[in-house]
């Protein structure tokens, strides 16, 4: 006897209820091919992804004036746009008195970071970055913020002049990467 739902939905599939190991293996293999195609696409696509770092753009960069360096006291920050109207960046003076600038895009899921209590904070999932090199120190982000190269001109004005390449394992100065260790070494 056919059940009531069979009569209500009289759809018959030959392989209904049967998903063989072979089909599953093929499905997994095709998904695997999809990942390869994804990496291939990233390789083939020359343009950087939306919101991605692009240190290569450096030489043809248009410098952007950010005001007088002396106007920014330690712990203060100022927002600015760099490459276009969507490229939100933050200029800050660290507690040690150095000027730094970063792209505001959090490396976790892209929210805008802000400078508060001597750290860069992402309010979305409470991610924190240290202000000296933009390294993540707490929360979900695992990659450093994109850093903007600055230039202080003789008239005292600060200019954003390009994007710094992100530190890689080869270029990483491990002592600089760990602020606590650095304090101990320089003390």
């Amino acid at each position: 006897m056919t059940t009531w739902w069979r009569r209500a939905f009289p759809l018959e599939l030959a392989e209904e209820g049967h998903f063989s190991r072979r089909e599953f293996a093929r499905f997994l293999a095709v998904v695997s091919a999809g990942f390869t195609a994804g990496i291939g696409y990233l390789w083939w696509r020359k343009k950087p992804l939306e919101g991605a770092s692009d240190p290569e753009a450096g030489p043809k960069e248009l410098p952007v004036a950010l005001g007088l360096a002396a106007d920014l006291q330690p712990g203060q920050s100022r927002l600015f746009k760099f490459r276009d109207a969507h490229d939100a960046c933050i200029l800050l003076r660290t507690p040690k008195g150095e000027l730094r600038a970063y792209r505001q895009t959090c490396t976790h899921l892209g929210c805008a970071v802000r400078y508060a209590e001597e750290r860069l904070e992402c309010p979305c999932h409470r991610g924190f970055f240290e202000p000296d090199r933009g390294f993540p120190v707490q929360g979900p982000p695992s990659r450093p913020l994109a850093a903007i190269a600055l230039e202080v001109r003789p008239d005292g004005t600060v200019w954003a002049v390009g994007e710094l390449p992100k530190p890689t394992l080869e270029t990483l100065d491990r002592r600089a990467a760990c602020p606590r260790e650095k304090t101990e070494v320089t003390a």
Partner: peptide, 20 residues
């Protein structure tokens, strides 16, 4: 790639191709 390090792409592609 999001960090601007595109040099890993060729190697990663061929490794991925081999696995596939």
């Amino acid at each position: 790639v999001l960090d601007g390090q595109r040099s890993v792409l060729p190697g990663a592609f061929f490794v991925s191709l081999a696995l596939t």
